[in-house]
Amino acid sequence: MIGIDFSGRKKLYEIGTLREVCFQCSVCALHCVVQNVEGYDIRNTFVYDVFGSDDPDHHRALWTCSGCHKCHEVCPQDVNPARVIDDLREQSFKNGCAPSYVYDLARLVIRTGMAFPVTRRTLKEREKMGLQPIETAAAGEIRQIAGITGLLDKIEAAQEKDKSEDRGQGEKQDD
């Protein structure tokens, strides 16, 4: 029998996307790539593990999901786990608990308008093929948008949290 930790479940209700109707049939696990991460089996699926987590902000595989939505397609109860995961990720990001590569990605998109860094090698390759250099004209506008939506503040708050945690660690070591 699988137990559910209700404190985590309460958090999900607060966000508002968890549907009561999930009856743990495990069908979502059939096509789930995260399911292959060590430790999950058909009676303890990734989706239950997230739904029942007492600390979803730090869940070990929260950011591994590829968002393929197959869990949603096959769900007989029309629960949308991908949507729940999006909402939980947003909370985890806001609380400064997302992996550092996610903050780096957000910063990169704001700074350059692109989600991948452009290397000198790529630029050379592009030139050889007669392709235009990559323009980053949108970056100023994206920064403005991220300021209005509050994303910049979230990134800054996470950075501050990181710094104060580092200081805390340092003080502990000094003791």
Binding site: I85, D86, R89, Y101, V102, A106, T149, L151
Partner: peptide, 12 residues
């Protein structure tokens, strides 16, 4: 990106 960036902030 609809996976990581969307997870960071859905409005942006």
């Amino acid at each position: 990106d609809p996976v990581r960036f969307k997870g960071a902030d859905q409005l942006t």
